[in-house]
Design a protein around this nucleic acid. Sequence first.
DNA 1: GTCTTGACTAGCG
DNA 2: ACGCTAGCCAAGA
Length: 106
Amino acid sequence: MNDFTKQVIELIRAIPEKHVMTYGQIARLAGKEKGARGVSWILHSMSRSYQLPWHRVVNQQGKISHQGSEQRELLEMEGIEFSVRGKLDLKEYQYHPKEEDASGDS
DNA sequence: GTCTTGACTAGCG
DNA sequence: ACGCTAGCCAAGA
């Protein structure tokens, strides 16, 4: 597993409730500005092996990408409200972790 | 080693 | 704001 993948997993796992992160943001913090596609694949592959809050990961538009899953329901369950168009306020829910602690585990 | 899949993002009209 | 195209990255077959 590359550091990128490991970083992504740690970042997603660090997302608290009532907060979300975008693929691009995670990818950038993991070291890949354009690694959003890689992040999506990691969620797709790792979410079944690791218990990651993948539902807290949304696209840059603040909308649910993997429509058809319970992601929307899970987010609403945490208290996140969606607009009529199925979008949420990134400027309110987007999480901003410390880049320096991306790989640092307690 | 090459092609395909996947839950993306930025740019342009 | 919406739809389409091009670019990017990782893992599996």
